[in-house]
Nucleic acid binder design. Structure first.
Lengths: 198, 198
DNA sequence: CATCCTACCGAGCAAGCGCTTGGTATCACA
DNA sequence: TGTGATACCAAGCGCTTGCTCGGTAGGATG
């Protein structure tokens, strides 16, 4: 451990607060999670939370912003701009599904599921990041329609895919019969029929 | 209006309570909706609610049970057991999407979105109805896999479809470019490629 | 050595919550 | 005309909520 920041527990208090909040918001919901629950989990008094965050909603905002930024990072790392539209679609689906079902799954669930709990101002701010994330999707799907890989409207297709992938958090089990890549392949097969691309 | 039941407002108080509760649970969420909000909306005092329902959660239970039962009714009315698996799939998708996006949409959203707010006992009770609703889906999808209309796992396919359709509540606009039947057709096309069935 | 800052404690406030209780007006029915 | 049931009001209880506030221990900095 370093020289400062540890009066109690392991690691910087603020990030431990964020981690526990993510977990509690996920399993109990934002509204049903009290600041006392959160403080107990972290090992501090409830009032001390407000030394780090100005309000309970500021915690939700921080959780969501972290979630969105790391999602963007993963997308940028995984999508090859030189690849074909079909390949990029496969990459986009893999990243999004992996984000929902992997380590960042709880944060992603909070991001999507607790969106209405955010104030209008916070929503507006985070929508800028969200739009940035959606652009590669728009491009890949539009190209797939243009070259005949995908039938129908690309915007509707994106919405349908987003719903299907997000919903996987409610039923996916890491120790189940289907692996993450199995599901990814099935989604790709359903969206753009034909032999699956790499 | 009949002879009894109207002391105030229009129609039986219990059903008005249920209607307003559905709306409030949808737009504000169950937890953020207070019995005082609900009472004000209906035009009675907050305490009077507990003459009709034993608890706030009992209201949620009633909303969800009504929602599930009418969903089952619509399914039964719309699905032809004599039709091919592909046709039945089309019918099932139409019913589910129509339920999400039509008049019963708010109740459906509450049913899916507020499920974690229900007590374990209530969940157990309603799961019996839900299982009944899922059976025709299982059969149609299993048949589609058997006859080659659908590739992949039928259980995963059902989960993906359910997510895609439910998510439509967040983006569908009745006055938008895509009609309900347009979206239904696109989903069918994506799930079972080939010429769309009636 | 004094000063400042950070991170927290301990106590508690005001507001809001679900729900209870006791009472009353109105009806159906005997 | 009396009785019981139904549908509601008026008041408020006990508890929990998000958040505030004065104080303090301890490291860093002049």
């Amino acid at each position: 451990m370093a020289q400062k920041d540890i009066r109690n527990g392991h690691g910087p208090a603020k990030s431990r607060l964020l981690n526990k909040a993510t977990h509690l918001f996920r399993v109990r919901g934002y509204e049903r999670t009290t600041v006392r629950d959160l403080a107990r989990e972290v090992g501090i008094h409830s009032g001390s939370i407000f030394h780090h965050f100005s309000s309970k909603e500021a915690i939700l905002h921080a959780v969501m912003e972290d979630s969105l930024r790391s999602l963007l990072d993963r997308q940028e790392a995984a999508v090859d701009p030189e690849a074909t539209a079909r390949e990029r679609l496969h990459q986009l689906i893999r990243v999004e599904l992996g984000s929902h079902l992997g380590e960042s799954g709880e944060a992603m669930s909070v991001l999507v599921g607790e969106w209405p709990s955010l104030s209008a101002e916070s929503q507006k701010e985070l929508l800028i990041l969200r739009d940035r994330y959606e652009r590669p999707w728009e491009q890949a799907l539009a190209e797939c329609v243009a070259n005949g890989d995908l039938r129908g409207d690309p915007v509707v297709a994106r919405k349908l895919i987003a719903g299907a992938l997000f919903h996987a958090t409610t039923w996916y089990r890491p120790d189940g019969a289907m692996s993450l890549e199995d599901i990814t392949r099935q989604v790709v097969t359903m969206v753009v029929p034909g032999s699956p691309a790499g």
